[in-house]
Amino acid sequence: MRLSPDQIIYWQHGFVTLNATIVFTWGLMLVLVIGSKLITLKLSTDLQRSRWQNFLEIIVTGIEKQIEEVGLKEPRTYLGFLGTLFLFIAMASLCTVIPGFEPPTGSLSTTVALALCVLVAVPFFGILNQGLGGYLKSYVQPTFIMLPFNIISEISRTLALAVRLFGNMMSGSMIIGILLSITPFIFPIVMTLLGLLTGMVQAYIFSILAAVYIAAATRTRKPSHKTLNNNPT
């Protein structure tokens, strides 16, 4: 029983392995980047614009709005990170309709990697916003006793992020695999549709949770430390 695309190994040289997870991730990256590049080649600043540009604009502004609604004041600072998280996971889920495609998010290694990125991003943005001292002080809020609990919560939520996404994606593929052996015709299609929905929901949940964590890390800043990064992203 294969639980992860990690187990499909195309090439191995000692420590370095080229498994399906990495390969499909590259594939997704290619699709995303080339698609974006193609669409943004002929960007129009007029009132008239192409449908694809409209589509991308809707996605980008939608993500921006979501980030803002979570409570982050400067959504463009976080748009690169959170938007890419969402787009990557959503694209991985969407591509499950392609036969033979193994979603990289179905690998615990990938989800752990993403969760680790979030784990690093939260203090990164926290420190960026309120400085190192201000960020570290948030660990001893409201009292010093809360420090270990804060650290545990930080680690556990990262783990939860990774496992939640992995479980959902893996289970989707798993259920389809199992159903294929039992009712090979119609039911797997229904489950695939359900898997698509689940994948979208998971992408949304993952990125929204990351946004919430970052917002929680940046919210406790003091008024005197308004050192915002104004880089448009």
């Binding site: 980047v33 943004t40 960007l43 540009q53 991308l56 980008v60 690169g80």
Partner: peptide, 9 residues
């Protein structure tokens, strides 16, 4: 390739 050009536009 995506956010900057789109947001700029």
């Amino acid at each position: 390739f995506l956010y900057q050009p789109i947001l700029h536009a």
